[in-house]
């Protein structure tokens, strides 16, 4: 019989991120599919609120590794906490959201446990009585479903790929697992945020706006209009609260001494060597045949694109609607109407 543990961590305010509820939902479904039970383990400074938030999930037990040592995400302490929780639960399968905090540490924990890990999984199903995990290889280019005999099996779930379990808060009883915080030579000193006006990455946004290198290239009148491109893009982000993604070629331009959009960095890059954000909608503005051939597109549910080339192979078959138009002109009009 599999012993399933769902690992969660609190946010800085003691709450749980929505990806935590996605993971709990996955654990609950998996347990049901295997006719088994599941437990929850929470890491954080103080887990009471978080435990109450998932108390109604039906876990057989809620374990906690809590205290000031676990307030900040840090490899040494988080690894010790997760290792202790997995051992306390006697877990054969560990599910966790693939947040930056857990992504930093769970493979290491797997090594300590002598297990195997699947990261950034998008689904778990039970086939022939065995759990089977869907995950990507070669970035988002090859899709697999696999099963394996080794245990413990740690599986991190890509945030946004599974439904959130809706729960009413209840009162939870928590079993504290004593974790001796290891001596660490690392101190987390803070969070560095980009300046507020450049805050163009919004993981929770409804819309991803993808800018291709075409914005910086020569336009129909024979000149490039980077200042205007900047204005149009920022205005649109401001009006819609969209998150900003860029093609690699646009993000790379800084290395070539070209004048580029100053708010754009490699953090915005999506696709092969960039991020693969998940948003309900995506609008790609390719511009003048300079298609952002972004694989990051893959995790966008509704997709539309603006391109001057109706035959563009990166839009055809990949986007729901392709507007054949000059992006400058069209986006100006869109902004006017959003006004």
């Amino acid at each position: 019989m599999e012993k399933i543990l769902c690992l969660l961590h609190t946010e800085s305010d003691g709450s749980l991120h929505k990806s935590a509820f996605e993971a709990v939902g996955a654990a609950k479904d998996l347990a049901a599919g295997l006719s088994s039970q599941f437990a929850i383990g929470i890491v954080g400074e103080s887990v009471a609120n978080a435990a109450n938030a998932v108390a109604g999930a039906g876990a057989e037990k809620i374990y906690a590794a809590q205290g000031a040592d676990f307030a900040q995400p840090k490899y040494a302490t988080d690894a010790a906490a997760c290792e202790a929780l997995a051992k306390a639960a006697g877990a054969t399968i560990v599910l966790a959201p693939a947040t930056s905090r857990f992504s930093r540490v769970l493979a290491g924990v797997t090594a300590r446990l002598g297990g195997r890990i699947e990261t950034n999984a998008t689904a778990i199903a039970v086939t022939n009585g065995k759990p089977a995990v869907s995950r990507w290889y070669y970035r988002q280019r090859i899709e697999t479903t696999l099963s394996r005999p080794q245990r413990p099996w740690v599986i991190t779930l890509s945030p946004g790929s599974l439904p959130e379990l809706q729960l009413a808060p209840a009162s939870a009883s928590v079993e504290n697992v004593a974790v001796a915080a290891p001596a660490s030579r690392t101190q987390v000193t803070g969070i560095q945020s980009p300046p507020a006006d450049a805050q163009t990455i919004r993981p929770d946004a409804q819309l991803l706006f993808v800018a291709g290198a075409g914005w910086t290239k020569q336009q129909a009148d024979g000149a490039s209009h980077i200042d205007e491109a900047e204005k149009i893009i920022l205005q649109f982000l401001h009006q819609t609260g969209a998150s900003l993604g860029s093609s690699k070629s646009l993000a790379d331009m800084s290395g070539e001494g070209q004048k580029i959009l100053p708010f754009m960095s490699h953090l915005n890059q999506i696709g092969q060597t960039g991020a693969s954000p998940r948003h309900p909608k995506g609008l790609a503005t390719c511009c003048h045949g300079e298609e952002p051939h972004v694989v990051g597109w893959r995790f966008i549910s509704e997709r539309r694109a603006v391109n001057t080339n109706p035959g563009c192979g990166w839009a055809q078959g990949k986007t729901d609607v392709l507007y054949v138009a000059d992006a400058f002109e069209l986006m100006r009009k869109v902004e006017e109407m959003l006004g």
């Binding site: 045949g289 080339n309 563009c312 192979g313 055809q316 078959g317």
Partner: peptide
Amino acid sequence: LDGQLLVSHQD
């Protein structure tokens, strides 16, 4: 264009 073999020049 069929997107497979008859593709745009840029493709």
